[in-house]
Nucleic acid binder design. Sequence first.
DNA 1: ATCCAGGTACCCA
DNA 2: TGGGTACATGGA
Length: 295
Amino acid sequence: MKKMILLENNIPFNLDATLSCGQVFQWICQDRWWTGVVRSQVWSVKQENGYLLYDGTTEEELIRYFNLDLDLLNVIHSIDDSIKQIRGCEVDHIFEMVSKSNIGLRIIKQDPWECLLSYICSQNSNIPTITKRIKLLSARYGSSLQSEWYTYPTPSTLACSTFQELKECSTGYRASYLQSTAYFINNHPDFLKRLENLSTQEARKCLLSLPGVGPKVADCVLLFAYNLYDSVPVDVWIRKIITSIYFHYLKSDENGPKLSYDKIVEFCRDYFGKYCGYAQQYLFSSRNELSSIIP
DNA sequence: ATCCAGGTACCCA
DNA sequence: TGGGTACATGGA
């Protein structure tokens, strides 16, 4: 068991909020200890009195995975400034509330392949189902680690699997997407690595060429694996929040036709600025509170 | 039982 | 380019 000091270094961080906000699916909390598999290792982490207690990893890896060296206050200020530019002196009470209730929530730096796999699995499913699906896939295809924990399946394992086996992991119609994408990545081992050098738009275009990857999955991978914070995944919740709260407020005349995915992204970029992906995640995290005030 | 969920591919005008 | 629909599964 090791210990890392957060408070003295003045690092705003909320482990619980970060791991339970729906950006990552392979973590489980028990007795305030979070356990999960990160790149073939079982990590255990607990936050307590300004410390991070941890096992199975190193301080450096924790900093990298949780992006602890990112100036989170600056991110929030940047979003606030951008909102002020749009609204002038009129306060955005919604985001003010949301940023308060998610203090310390950080966007994680996930492994690109694991993230891609997770979000292909995620489509048209709720979070408990996604979690279960990923667990089944790992148990069947991953390597065994300590006590019931498994690594993510590798591209080559998935590429070689049969359609039937994949379906037995409750993947449904996503099975063919998983297999095709795994097959492609297996044949292009540097594909995901290469995206690191590209702009958000270029990397997005590459991801969209993969089977089973549309705008939403691509934006999740850009945001959660490559930390391109100007990416805005638009799921049904974000769509609801932006159209009925924000877009409606600012452009009340545009009520009729359904807004396109790109229109919603464009709005978020303009409104929240270069960290709009962060704003998106805070809104998503508060979706339950927000849906009670949506008409 | 019915609706819905961190959507995408495909078809058609 | 944009709109409609099938797709598998399980949670609420």
